[in-house]
Nucleic acid binder design. Structure first.
Lengths: 176, 176
DNA sequence: GGGTGATGGTTGATTTTTCAACTAAACGCC
DNA sequence: GGCGTTTAGTTGAAAAATCAACCATCACCC
């Protein structure tokens, strides 16, 4: 197995790292490789299956759905753009565009933030709320069918804990 | 906790499902909810952190990198478009466009498939190979730093197994 | 109270992705 | 051997995401 054609991230035959680095790269073991690939592949396929479910009958995009969910959890179904962007791990620009579209559809509204004249609040409209309600059952069913019910409970729990750690780390890497 | 404002996928107060369904939707428990959120959030942040790493110093996009990796594992660094699309969970159209771009950059080449005049093979060029080599160390380092080394080994192993199951299920859902 | 830098958000151009329509070759089958 | 169907891949237009500037307000602090 060692002499396969140089694998994904397997030790490349020639080329040394560009510069500076002391070549202290540790490649992944076979097992790690497998797990990493499984994660990658599984996530890609899961997301696209879920997307497909949203196309077929759920009246909002997966992304829009998540945005509505975030808002739905706020006391007044209201969240500042920046908080929303952070919560959803979206760029500010992307959020601006997304909210533009959703606003046009009447799902959310922009309102000024009381204390800060720079700020903009994003508020879910009744329309948006209704749509969320409508979308929720099929969405949850899909998540169950494609993820939750596929795993046994402990597995799923571990997955959750693991990804929570990953989230923390990634967050640190980005803004740290 | 039950009487929070209707949660993400928590039991909505009003609206019944659109039609037909016998309302047999099972909502997620608190724990499941947490795990699902963690997965979603963790994945989003992980991917964007990895993307960012690719921007900063790695000379190919994450997507392009994965494509090159797939090719690198084939005997002749060659794979049919359809196989590549399946392997990467990409739409055919998206693959066509992506390969267009990469071909312009000289990273891959299109060649006819010997036995089947409909088919198109995608072959990694030496250029592409060199680039992959160059990119690999930093890529692997990032994956380690952001994922592999963040988890303890058993956790990571479980993650791998779990997502492999998920991948199978999603695949079944899509083409089954 | 007037700079200076950070924060919040938007804009518009560029690049990617998606979507639906389309061509061409292969397959099956009678 | 001819006809419908499926498979492979491309195309181009429309939608969405990214990127780099940009404007305004705020916060600090001297």
């Amino acid at each position: 197995m060692v002499t396969k054609s140089p694998r994904p991230a397997g030790a490349p035959a020639g080329a040394a790292p560009t510069a500076g680095q002391a070549l202290a790269v540790e490649w992944l073991t076979e097992d790690q490789q497998r797990a990493w690939r499984a994660y990658l592949d599984g996530t890609a396929r899961f997301v696209s299956a879920l997307d497909r479910a949203h196309d077929a009958g759920i009246p909002v995009t997966l992304g829009e759905y998540h945005l509505l969910v975030q808002l739905s959890e706020q006391p007044d179904r209201t969240l500042r753009m920046s908080a929303l962007a952070d919560g959803l791990a979206l760029s500010r620009s992307r959020l601006t565009h997304t909210v533009d579209r959703m606003e046009r559809r009447g799902l959310v509204e922009r309102r000024p933030v009381p204390g800060d004249r720079r700020g903009v609040n994003c508020v879910m409209t009744d329309e948006g709320w209704k749509l969320l309600q409508q979308a929720a059952p099929a969405h949850v069913a899909a998540v169950r069918r494609l993820l939750v019910d596929v795993l046994d409970p402990e597995e799923f729990a571990v997955l959750g804990r693991a990804m929570a750690k990953v989230a923390r780390e990634a967050k640190a890497a980005v803004d740290g």
